[in-house]
Simulated assay, not measured.
Amino acid sequence: MPNELERVPRTRTILLWGARLLVVAALAALLLAARRQRSAELDLVQKDHDATERRVTEIYGKAADQLGSDKAPVRLAGLCALERLAGGYAEHRQTIVNVRCSYVRMPVGGPGENLEELQVRKTAQRILLVHRRPGPARPTGRTGASGRTSAST
C-alpha cells in the first residue's frame, strides 16, 4: 500500500508539469503565429506602398513629358494629370506645385507667343490659384484649349 500512496502524488506531479509544459508550448506557438501574421501584414503594407509609389512615379513622369510637348492640348493634359496626382497624393503636392510654378516661370517663345501657349499658362496659373491654400484639393472649373469648361474631381 505505501507504494500505491506514493504513486498518486508522483503521477499528479508529472501530469501537472506536463500540463504546464503543454501550456508553455501552446503560448510559444501562439506567439510565433502572431509574429508571422504581423510580418505578413507589414510585407503587404510595404508592397502596397511600393506599388503606389511606382504608380505615382509613372503618372508624374508621363505628365512631365506631356508638359514638354510642343502641342498645347498635350501640355494641358499634363497639367490635368498633375492636378489629379496632387489631389490624390498629398505628400507629393508640393513637388507638383513646384513643377507648375517652374512651367509658368519658363521663358516663352518670344513676342509672337501663340494663343495656345498663353491658354496653357493661364490654366497652370488658375490651378495654382485654386490650390494656393494648404488642405485637401478642391474641385475646379477650368477652361481648356477648346474654350469649354470642365470640372475636375
Rank of each mutant, 00 (worst) to 15 (best):
123 T>N: 08
112 G>D: 09
8 V>D: 09
119 Q>W: 10
126 R>Y: 14
121 R>G: 05
31 L>C: 12
3 N>R: 11
72 A>I: 03
97 V>F: 10
148 R>A: 15
4 E>N: 12
66 Q>S: 13
79 L>G: 00
106 M>K: 15
143 T>S: 13
5 L>T: 07
139 P>T: 12
101 C>S: 14
137 A>Q: 04
15 L>Q: 15
97 V>G: 06
28 A>P: 00
38 R>F: 03
41 E>G: 01
13 T>R: 11
74 V>G: 01
148 R>H: 12
85 L>P: 00
79 L>Y: 00
36 R>M: 08
2 P>I: 02
150 S>F: 10
19 A>C: 08
95 T>R: 10
40 A>N: 06
21 L>R: 08
118 L>C: 11
36 R>Q: 11
8 V>N: 08
127 I>V: 15
151 A>L: 13
3 N>G: 15
69 S>V: 02
133 R>E: 15
65 D>C: 09
77 A>C: 05
137 A>H: 05
92 H>C: 03
126 R>A: 15
49 H>M: 05
82 L>C: 06
140 T>R: 06
139 P>S: 13
15 L>N: 15
46 Q>A: 06
71 K>I: 00
87 G>C: 10
93 R>I: 05
85 L>T: 01
98 N>H: 09
134 P>T: 15
67 L>A: 01
151 A>V: 15
120 V>N: 00
14 I>A: 01
18 G>T: 04
69 S>L: 02
127 I>R: 00
135 G>F: 06
150 S>I: 09
148 R>L: 13
151 A>Y: 13
72 A>L: 08
104 V>W: 03
31 L>H: 06
83 E>F: 07
58 E>C: 11
39 S>L: 06
2 P>Y: 12
122 K>M: 14
79 L>D: 02
108 V>D: 07
110 G>I: 02
14 I>S: 04
36 R>W: 08
24 V>L: 08
57 T>A: 13
136 P>V: 13
136 P>T: 13
